[in-house]
Amino acid sequence: MAAGGDHGSPDSYRSPLASRYASPEMCFVFSDRYKFRTWRQLWLWLAEAEQTLGLPITDEQIQEMKSNLENIDFKMAAEEEKRLRHDVMAHVHTFGHCCPKAAGIIHLGATSCYVGDNTDLIILRNALDLLLPKLARVISRLADFAKERASLPTLGFTHFQPAQLTTVGKRCCLWIQDLCMDLQNLKRVRDDLRFRGVKGTTGTQASFLQLFEGDDHKVEQLDKMVTEKAGFKRAFIITGQTYTRKVDIEVLSVLASLGASVHKICTDIRLLANLKEMEEPFEKQQIGSSAMPYKRNPMRSERCCSLARHLMTLVMDPLQTASVQWFERTLDDSANRRICLAEAFLTADTILNTLQNISEGLVVYPKVIERRIRQELPFMATENIIMAMVKAGGSRQDCHEKIRVLSQQAASVVKQEGGDNDLIERIQVDAYFSPIHSQLDHLLDPSSFTGRASQQVQRFLEEEVYPLLKPYESVMKVKAELCL
C-alpha cells in the first residue's frame, strides 16, 4: 500500500493539533497551500530580480507567473513527485505547466533550498508574528487579574506546605514575570531571523556568478533584492546548502521555554482548584465526569500541561538535527523538520489560546482563602504575639514557653481530632496574655502579614508589564474561544 493518505478522510490519521486544537490561522501558515504558494512567490521574486539585473526574462513571463501564483494543481504535483521522487522539481514542473512561456526560467540558477529553506524562514517569521500578540493578550488578562487582587491576602506555599502570606495578585505576578520573559525572547528570536537568500547549491553562489558572467556586484544585488522582497532586513552571508540548523534550535528553545512557563502556571491553577481557592472557567453544560456528576475538573489547565510537556520535548529534535548536518548538509534534517517545526508552533498556539481562555474567566473564592488563612495564621502570628507581650512588660522566655504549650495543644486538636485551630481562643482565655487581649485582632490582621506584596504588584505592572504590552494595544480586544 502506498504511503500517505487522504487526510480529510475519517479513515486516515490526522494530527489532533490540526484537527482538534490549533487555530485556523496557525494551521494555514503550515498548510501545503501556504507552503507551495510561497515557493511560487519566491520563484517570481527571483525572476523579477534577475530581470532587473539584466537576464533575458520578459515582462510577459513575469506576468504569467504572477497570474498563476494561486493556480496550484495539487493532484498534478503529487503525481509528479511520485514520478520524480523530488518535491521541488515536482512543483517546478507543475508551475511550468500553467506558465508555459515562463517554464524555462522558473528556478533559474537556484537549488531546492532556495524555495525550501527560504519558505521555512518566512513561515517561522509569520508563525512567530501570530504567537506574539496571543502571548501579549494572556499577559494582559493576567495583569488585569493581578491588579484587581493585588491586596487580597492568601496563604503562600513553599514545598506545598503553608508559608508566609502573600497576595493573590502577587502570586499571579510570578506567572506574568515568566511570560514577559517569554514574550521578550519570542520577539528577540523573531527579529534575529535572517533570510537564507540566493546562495546556490553549497552556499557559494557559483551558479549565479556564472549567470551574471562573473559580476560579483550583481550577485550581491540579486541576494539583497530577493531578501528585501521577502520582507527581511538581512540575509546570511555564510550558508551551506541550507541555512544553519542552529536557527531551528533557537526558535524551538524559546517555544519550549514558553511551554515550561505555561505548565507551571496551569499546575498552580490545578492545585488551587483542589484547594477550592480558584477555578478555571466551567461552562453551564460542561460535564466533569461521566460517573461523578459533582466533579469540576480543571480540564483546560490539564490540557495545557499535557501539550506543554510535548512542546518542551520537541527542542531535542533540532538539537540532534543540527549535530548531524555533515559538511554542507545531509538530508537527516528533512523529514524531522517537516514534523517538529509545525508541531512546535501548533502546540504553542494551542496552549496560548487555551491559557487566554482560562485567564479571561478565572474565578476566585475569597471566603475559602480566608478560612485557610484562619487555619494557619495563628501559628504564624506567634512571633508577633511574643513581641507584643514583651512590649507590655512580659518575659520573652516565659511567653515563648506559654505559646509553645498552647500551640501544641491547638495542633493536637487540628491533627488528632480534625478540629479547627483554636490557638487564639486559648490565648484569649489565658490570664497571662490579658495585657494584649485587646491587640489580638490587630495582630491577626492578614494584611499585616503580606509585606509589600501589593506595592510590588503595582510597581511591576507599571514599570515592566504595561510598557512591554504597549506595541500590542491594537490587538488586545480579541477574545479566545474554545470549541473543545
Score class of each variant (00 low, 15 high):
Ala2Asp: 12
Gly4Trp: 15
Gly5Glu: 10
Asp6Tyr: 01
Pro10Ile: 14
Pro10Gln: 14
Asp11Glu: 10
Ser12Arg: 15
Ser15Phe: 13
Pro16Arg: 14
Ser19Ile: 08
Ser19Arg: 01
Ala22Lys: 12
Glu25Val: 10
Met26Leu: 11
Val29Gly: 08
Phe30Met: 14
Arg33Cys: 12
Tyr34Gly: 15
Lys35Asn: 13
Lys35Arg: 09
Phe36Ser: 09
Trp39Ala: 14
Gln41Asn: 05
Gln41Ser: 12
Leu42Val: 09
Leu42Glu: 04
Trp43Thr: 01
Trp43Asn: 05
Leu44His: 01
Trp45Glu: 09
Leu46Met: 11
Glu48Asn: 05
Glu48Ile: 14
Glu50Gly: 07
Gln51Ala: 05
Thr52Pro: 09
Leu53Phe: 05
Leu55Met: 06
Pro56Glu: 07
Thr58Asn: 05
Lys66Asp: 02
Ser67Tyr: 13
Asp73Val: 03
Asp73Tyr: 04
Phe74Gln: 06
Ala77Asp: 15
Glu79Gln: 09
Glu80Phe: 07
Lys82Trp: 08
Lys82Asn: 07
Arg83Asn: 12
Asp87Gln: 02
Ala90Arg: 01
Val92Glu: 12
His93Phe: 08
Thr94Trp: 00
Thr94Pro: 04
Gly96Asn: 07
Cys99Gly: 06
Ala102Ser: 10
Ala102Thr: 14
Ala102Asp: 03
Ala102Gln: 06
Ile106Ser: 05
His107Trp: 00
His107Pro: 02
Ala110Ile: 07
Ala110Cys: 13
Thr111Met: 01
Ser112Asn: 00
Ser112Val: 00
Cys113Trp: 00
Cys113Arg: 03
Cys113Asp: 00
Tyr114Ile: 06
Val115Ser: 07
Gly116Lys: 01
Gly116Leu: 11
Asp117Trp: 00
Asn118Trp: 07
Asn118Gly: 11
Thr119Tyr: 09
Ile122Thr: 07
Ile123Leu: 11
Ile123Pro: 04
Leu124Tyr: 05
Arg125Gly: 09
Asp129Ala: 09
Leu130Ala: 15
Leu131Arg: 02
Leu132Gly: 09
Pro133Lys: 13
Pro133Asn: 03
Pro133Trp: 11
Lys134Trp: 13
Lys134Asn: 13
Leu135Ala: 08
Leu135Gln: 15
Leu135Ser: 10
Arg137Leu: 12
Leu142Ala: 07
Phe145Lys: 03
Ala146His: 07
Glu148Lys: 02
Ser151Ala: 09
Thr154Met: 07
Phe157Ser: 08
His159Leu: 03
Phe160Lys: 02
Gln161Leu: 01
Gln161Ser: 05
Pro162Cys: 10
Pro162Lys: 00
Gln164Ser: 09
Gln164Tyr: 04
Gln164Arg: 03
Thr166Met: 02
Thr166Tyr: 00
Thr167Asn: 03
Val168Leu: 05
Val168Asn: 03
Val168His: 09
Arg171Asp: 00
Arg171Val: 01
Arg171Lys: 08
Cys172Lys: 03
Leu174Val: 14
Leu174Ser: 12
Trp175Ala: 15
Ile176His: 02
Asp178Asn: 14
Leu179Ala: 15
Leu179Gly: 03
Cys180Met: 08
Met181Gly: 03
Asp182Thr: 02
Asp182Ile: 00
Gln184Tyr: 07
Asn185Glu: 12
Lys187Ala: 15
Arg190Ala: 13
Arg190Gln: 11
Asp192Gly: 14
Asp192Pro: 11
Asp192His: 05
Arg194Lys: 14
Phe195Trp: 10
Phe195Gly: 08
Arg196Asn: 07
Arg196Val: 12
Gly200Arg: 01
Gly200Glu: 03
Thr202Gly: 04
Gln210Met: 13
Leu211Arg: 05
Leu211Lys: 07
Asp215Gly: 15
Asp215Ser: 11
Asp216Arg: 08
Asp216Glu: 15
Lys218Ile: 06
Leu222Val: 09
Asp223Gly: 07
Lys224Gln: 01
Met225Lys: 04
Met225Tyr: 14
Val226Thr: 00
Val226His: 07
Thr227Asp: 06
Glu228Phe: 15
Glu228Trp: 15
Ala230Cys: 05
Lys233Ser: 08
Ile238Val: 10
Thr244Ile: 02
Val247Trp: 10
Asp248Thr: 04
Ile249Lys: 02
Ile249Arg: 01
Glu250Val: 08
Glu250Ala: 11
Val251Arg: 08
Val251Asp: 03
Ser253Trp: 10
Leu255Asp: 00
Leu258Val: 08
Leu258Asn: 09
Leu258Ser: 06
Ser261Phe: 00
Val262Ile: 11
Lys264Asn: 04
Ile265Leu: 14
Ile269Met: 07
Arg270Tyr: 03
Leu271Pro: 01
Ala273Ser: 12
Asn274Lys: 02
Met278Glu: 00
Glu279Met: 02
Glu280Phe: 03
Phe282Tyr: 15
Phe282Trp: 12
Ile287Gly: 03
Ile287Met: 09
Ser290Ala: 05
Ala291Asp: 04
Pro293Leu: 02
Tyr294Asn: 04
Lys295Gly: 00
Met299Gly: 03
Met299Arg: 01
Ser301Arg: 00
Arg303Glu: 01
Cys304Glu: 08
Ser306Glu: 01
Leu307Val: 11
Leu307Pro: 00
Ala308Phe: 03
Thr313Asn: 09
Leu314Lys: 06
Val315Arg: 04
Met316Arg: 06
Asp317Ile: 07
Pro318Ile: 01
Leu319Trp: 04
Gln320Cys: 04
Thr321Asp: 02
Thr321Asn: 08
Val324Thr: 08
Gln325Ile: 10
Gln325Arg: 04
Glu328Gly: 05
Glu328Asn: 00
Arg329Cys: 03
Arg329Gln: 02
Leu331Gln: 03
Asp332Gly: 01
Asp333Leu: 02
Asp333Lys: 00
Arg337Gln: 05
Arg338Glu: 02
Ile339Arg: 02
Glu343Asn: 10
Ala344Lys: 05
Phe345Asp: 02
Leu346His: 15
Thr347Ile: 08
Ala348Cys: 15
Asp349Tyr: 06
Ile351Tyr: 00
Thr354Pro: 08
Thr354Leu: 10
Glu360Pro: 15
Val364Thr: 02
Val364Asn: 11
Tyr365Thr: 13
Tyr365Arg: 10
Val368Glu: 02
Val368Lys: 06
Glu370Ser: 15
Arg371Trp: 00
Ile373Gln: 04
Leu377Cys: 05
Phe379Met: 13
Ala381Gly: 04
Ala381Pro: 00
Ala381Met: 07
Asn384Arg: 11
Asn384Thr: 12
Ile385Trp: 05
Ile386Gly: 06
Met387Phe: 08
Ala388Glu: 08
Ala392Ile: 09
Gly393Gln: 07
Arg396Gln: 00
Asp398Met: 10
Asp398Asn: 13
Lys402Ser: 10
Arg404Pro: 06
Val405His: 05
Gln409Arg: 07
Ala410Arg: 01
Ala410Gln: 02
Ser412Gln: 10
Ser412Trp: 09
Val413Gln: 14
Val413Asp: 04
Gly418Pro: 06
Gly419Met: 13
Leu423Gly: 03
Leu423Tyr: 08
Ile424Thr: 12
Gln428Ala: 13
Gln428Pro: 02
Val429Lys: 04
Phe433Trp: 03
Pro435Asn: 15
His437Glu: 06
Gln439Ala: 15
Asp441His: 15
Leu443Phe: 07
Leu443Lys: 02
Ser447Asp: 10
Thr450Ser: 04
Gly451Gln: 04
Arg452His: 11
Gln455Pro: 10
Arg459Ile: 15
Phe460Gly: 04
Leu461Val: 15
Glu463Val: 12
Glu464Asn: 12
Val465Glu: 03
Val465Met: 08
Leu468Asn: 15
Leu468Pro: 09
Leu468Val: 14
Leu469Met: 07
Lys470Trp: 14
Val475Trp: 10
Val475Leu: 13
Lys479Asp: 08
Leu482Arg: 11
Cys483Leu: 12
Leu484Ile: 10
Leu484Met: 14
